[in-house]
Design a protein around this nucleic acid. Structure first.
Lengths: 356, 356
DNA sequence: TTGAAAGCGCTACCAA
DNA sequence: TTGGTAGCGCTTTCAA
């Protein structure tokens, strides 16, 4: 890591020998609308009318100009908190930043969503809740009095949702594995991802299926349901399912590959394309033929997976358009009384290439 | 894309036939500290003292309990905006969300930074500025009256920094290619990345160097300086530098590979490991020997690059610890008068593997 | 030990 | 067409 050096703490206050050079510390008080009013020689009300282009009131062009110039001269910027305090509501949409590292697909989705909400005139803010988990975090979010909250992952419980609503949130939307009482839900059920993979492998005649379980923290939110999906796909077929813990590094992969033949597996669902690429390389180094001896399938349809030889089969995931979610949020905000909507939004389709 | 269906717009207001069933819309007014005071039979002042554990005032244990219970019962959550309005300052650190897709390295850095600032009791918030660019965006940020602003990428100009400071921001820190007047700067100079790569290739005896320029929008902030770095490394050596536009897809790579021999290059710096993997695959499919005919080097030291054969050489990047930046921010907030600090923070070292 | 009240910056109602 | 002013929810003197 590159270090940012900590400068020596001054033992005494810096000498005031060159006061002119010192940048004016807090650069004076922050200008308020009252300052603008004073400079323009009008009342604060008039300033508010002019700067907000109030349609309910007619202000002479001359006054408008004076106010605008005064605001410009002072570098006046309105105080959002004061404004929304007065208004009694805000257009703030709060989105706790996901604590797990997310892939490009999800990042793009979030990005699109933010853009769409921005067009609807909401202010979108990602809040990194530090230690707090679940309902405890909901309190911290509620302090910001958001008009809507979008919670990715395993969010707050019903209790947390209630806290948010009591704090004035008109819509709470969860993006996760299951619906939460009182909140709208975009259900991303990773179980279906595993199910597709399992069904595909079974259809290709495989009967002894391994499932990679990443050892990296935080991924089990996804890996558990995916495993469950494989199990469900294979239930009653006589096929077996074997969990394969795997760390995201070459040593771990090599160790797994070394005992591969002993495991007697004829297929593996490798959690995602990255783990699949890692494992596939290790298996090939071990002389395991793919897909002959062992079929491999990943997930996420990364570009890089297509570059492998054999080309990596994968489960392609699809998220809804950010636009759609933005519309849902807007609808919910306008009509908070409407019953919660539920949508299963995680599409999963197998893209068969050469590794399976 | 999975569509979230838009429910048919109700042509008439929903019948009020089942008013009991309708979830109490806005669930009533949001409880305030006055409500808590009323319920506990004390004044608002006392409520504030109790809930903030004020040390300057002694409150009887019985009163404390009554207040706490009342707050609990009402589900009271303080109003952050009102609080900071009264206090005249906030602990809000604003960080505009980078508009470019960023890699895992940068994501981890941001994550670490947020955690560290959280420990210092700052509230970190990522703000997605919609359309606005540069100084224009600074105004939007200033409305939130953050105590500090961390701007990644090519942030605001000196004008924007001034706006933020006038709005009370005690620290503005840019994370980008160059320092901005009036702001602290963590300089991430990608020029050095290209320079390392160029110097390495030259040291390996290469003289006709291609540099991949991704065609994806937004990446030129990084790719231009990297190209410049290669140019500088090779200046005066008689070696040539050739720009190679490349889209992140197989067709684009295949097209480039098809005309490879005609280009007469003996080395290529492929922007990063992903583009390097893409290009390397295309070159190998074309029968180009690596590193014999053409040396390839990427950047970012992705795990996946190590899996290639030949293993991909790369420029490993290093960012400072989030802790360090958090400390810098805290220092700056405490002493806004201090002169701006500048630190070059992007470490770059060549990791030679087999492809160069 | 507790309460009354001022005031942070802003907008919107009502008068002038 | 413009100004006076109340009040959003909170904290913090100052008095009691």
């Amino acid at each position: 890591m590159v270090e940012i050096p900590e400068p020596p703490a001054p033992l005494a206050p810096a000498p005031a020998s060159t006061p002119a050079r010192a940048p004016r510390s807090a650069s004076g008080p922050v200008p308020t609308s009252a300052d603008v009013a004073r400079l323009a020689g009008v009342s604060r009300a008039t300033v508010s009318y002019v700067l907000n282009d109030s349609r309910t009131v007619r202000i002479s062009e001359a006054t408008r100009r004076r106010v605008r110039e005064a605001a410009e001269e002072l570098g006046y910027v309105p105080h959002a908190a004061a404004r929304s305090l007065r208004a009694g509501h805000s257009r703030l949409v709060l989105m706790p930043a996901p604590s797990v590292p997310v892939g490009p697909l999800y990042s793009r989705f979030i990005d699109e969503l933010q853009r769409a909400l921005g067009r609807l005139d909401y202010t979108v803010v990602q809040h990194a809740t530090v230690g707090a988990r679940g309902d405890e975090a909901a309190r911290a979010w509620a302090e910001l009095r958001p008009v809507a909250v979008l919670v990715p992952g395993s969010g707050p419980g019903p209790e947390g949702v209630a806290v948010l609503k009591r704090a004035g949130a008109r819509a709470v939307v969860t993006l996760g594995p299951e619906a939460v009482e009182g909140a709208h839900a975009l259900i991303m059920d990773h179980e279906s991802v595993g199910h597709r993979a399992g069904a595909h492998l079974h259809a290709r005649g495989r009967r002894r299926v391994g499932v990679v379980m990443p050892q990296e923290r935080g991924l089990d939110v996804f890996s558990r349901p995916r495993l469950e999906g494989v199990r469900r796909a294979l239930r009653g077929t006589g096929a077996t399912v074997t969990e394969l813990p795997l760390g995201y590094d070459e040593q771990s992969a090599a160790r797994l590959a070394a005992r591969w033949r002993g495991l007697g597996l004829d297929a593996v669902f490798a959690y995602n394309d990255e783990y699949a690429m890692l494992l596939m390389r290790a298996l090939m180094d071990e002389g395991v033929r793919i897909p002959g001896e062992t079929a491999v399938i990943g997930a996420d349809d990364l570009m890089l997976g297509r570059l492998l030889r054999p080309r990596l089969s994968t489960v392609r995931l699809e998220l809804p358009s950010g636009r759609g979610l933005a519309a849902l949020v807007d609808r919910a905000v306008r009509d908070p009384g409407a019953p919660p909507e539920r949508h299963a939004v995680l599409g999963a389709t197998v893209v068969r290439r050469e590794s399976s």
